[in-house]
Design a protein around this nucleic acid. Structure first.
Lengths: 362, 362
DNA sequence: TTGTAGGCGTTATCAC
DNA sequence: GTGATAACGCCTACAA
């Protein structure tokens, strides 16, 4: 009731602004401010703030008035003003090498979704092919309340530098560093099981395609595979280092299958490499899995559709991102806590490309 | 020179802060402020600001002193304070449905890179599978200086709403809407050329796989194809509506090839659909391109590696994102300007899957 | 229950 | 050249 005095009624606060033409620098037109709402509702800005945030008591009558004013003026509090007052950006960062291939894309999506549910927006930074990654990451850090770093995007030194500034940091798919939480997926044990599965198929000349130096996850997978082989008294051949995409897998596969004594199984560091290897095998006239078994990692969509369907390891990529978001949120809100390091389980997905399974379904 | 009085010398501004313990709400520890730098350099904050921004004259002697203080204290201006004073976030938003498949991922990467070069960071928002897209987009809009919207993520009404708030908006892969700039790729003409190419191979029963209703780009491609057919007096069959992924392409392909009079060419709305269709053809025992031609769109990496290699259309996806970033930057800095609508060219990439080409290279 | 007033950290406009 | 000082828009003790 009673909202009349719109025109006159110069409330003490009302005279505060002049709102002249903006300067040369283009500035966003901040629409309605809390002062205008207060004036219209005939209250102080404190009351408006209380109504909006639900902090402190407000009589239902004034609340109505304030809400009406907010509604009529279509008031939206400035994120800038709020951020400064609260001293927080309400935003998280995420650093990844690139988005080619489903892996990082999925992690990012999981992260964005979980962050959104926590009321935080997400700033991205891709480091691939940029030499000034350190500066970019530090800059990003200054724009957010905390960030997650995927894989080997920047050296450990930068992560420590970051942690030293006090910016909450969460590492994903990367070994823990003092001062930062981490979320990883289990790799070594499952890789061991995968190798044993292949051994069970009678494979003994097992080659590993992927570069353990370029990713801790790959290093773990290699460790698991070579460990399982060693346990059977088989001396593992050194890994065939290659990049993470189909091209590289194709090249590596061609190279391996062209040898005089080619391997009878190709354990690939991810599905894309494996898909490339499948192509190389086909081109070389080798049947999969009869002549050579091929396995991947990640269980991307194409793994189900390849011919033969790819035996691989499923990683909860979205969940990985979501966990990272929650871990970060925890760190941001909980001042000091012991470092936490999560490890998510992975699943061996046996399909056709690793050998014959009489009873299994397709 | 002469920086000695570090300890005492309570400059007038120096006494301004108390910096007590933060309240309950976790706040980022704003490190050094401009006041501390000013105190240390024995100047006012105005001078520090001038030095940092290069605005206004400063004697080289004081500049030295200020720079030294900045360096010694490792001062980094607060983005929050700066943003409020400048009334700008120095950040752009981007809205996309998801990141599965290379298309959006590439556009986002191109966008992020170009935005970074313009000194702006990028906030992302994925709308896929969320019912409250409108609220999410409006929320995002309040956190950035401007945003780009990819494809059919939200209804036109929301775009107009956005434009009405004055937030600079750029549309990508989506028809222009009053109040927003747009960047698109050419589709219809190239689709026409593609269809004519197939006609030149003697194909006449051409099927289109993809849903024109779900994307303006697809609608254009369909228009180009059906137009070319009609121009030859061929009455095009209605498009076979399907989703954008390999699964859908596989299903649609299976369906089509199972008909009594199957088509002799499958024109797919994107490469993923085409890859699925290739699989369906193989499974159905049809040779590509002898029995049935297959074409895609986008020229993703797998298109080169599929067997046979896929005839497709190259779109400058990264460039699309980069252009959008620059268009947005222009809009943000140039107050009012006539709406601009860019259209980037596309290239027909003829490979093996559309028919035999005696003289072409692989 | 409500209002006053002092931050939050910069930028920028004036005087001097 | 330099320094006060008023914005910028909101939050929140502390008073009343």
């Amino acid at each position: 009731m009673a909202v009349k005095a719109l025109t006159s009624a110069a409330s003490p606060a009302g005279a505060r602004r002049s709102r002249g033409g903006a300067g040369v620098t283009a500035q966003a037109p901040q629409g309605v401010t809390i002062y205008e709402v207060a004036e219209r509702a005939q209250v102080s800005i404190a009351t408006v703030s209380r109504v909006m945030r639900g902090s402190g008591p407000v009589s239902s009558e004034t609340r109505e008035r304030v809400l009406a004013a907010i509604d009529e003026l279509a008031f939206t509090p400035s994120r800038l003003g709020r951020a400064l007052a609260e001293r927080r950006h309400a935003a998280n960062g995420i650093v990844f090498p690139d988005l080619s291939g489903p892996y990082y894309a999925e992690v990012v999506l999981g992260y964005e979704e979980a962050a959104g549910e926590l009321g935080r927006s997400v700033l991205i930074l891709s480091t691939h092919g940029r030499r000034d990654a350190r500066e970019l990451v530090l800059d990003l850090a200054s724009r957010v309340d905390g960030l997650v770093i995927l894989g080997r995007t920047v050296p450990d030194g930068v992560v420590r530098e970051l942690a030293a500034t006090g910016r909450p940091t969460v590492l994903v798919a990367r070994p823990p560093v003092a001062g930062a939480d981490s979320v990883n997926t289990e790799s070594a044990a499952t890789a061991g099981r995968l190798a044993e599965h292949l051994l069970g198929h009678g494979r003994e000349r097992i080659a590993f395609l992927g570069d353990p130096r370029r990713s801790s996850d790959v290093a773990q997978r290699w460790a698991g595979v070579s460990g399982a082989l060693a346990a059977r008294g088989i001396r593992p051949a050194p890994p065939v280092r290659c990049g993470f995409d189909e091209d590289c897998g194709y090249e590596a596969g061609r190279h391996l299958l062209g040898r005089r004594r080619p391997p009878d199984a190709l354990v690939c560091a991810n599905d894309e490499i494996a898909l490339g290897a499948l192509l190389a095998a086909e081109e070389a006239g080798r049947r999969v899995p009869e002549d050579v078994a091929v396995t991947g990692w990640d269980d991307v969509m194409s793994a189900r559709h390849s011919r033969p369907a790819l035996t691989t390891v499923r990683q909860p990529m979205r969940e990985l991102g979501a966990r990272a978001a929650r871990a970060l949120d925890r760190r941001i809100n909980a001042a000091r806590a012991a470092p936490r390091h999560e490890v998510l389980p992975t699943d061996l997905v046996v399909r056709k490309s690793c050998g014959h399974h009489p009873k299994e379904e397709s």
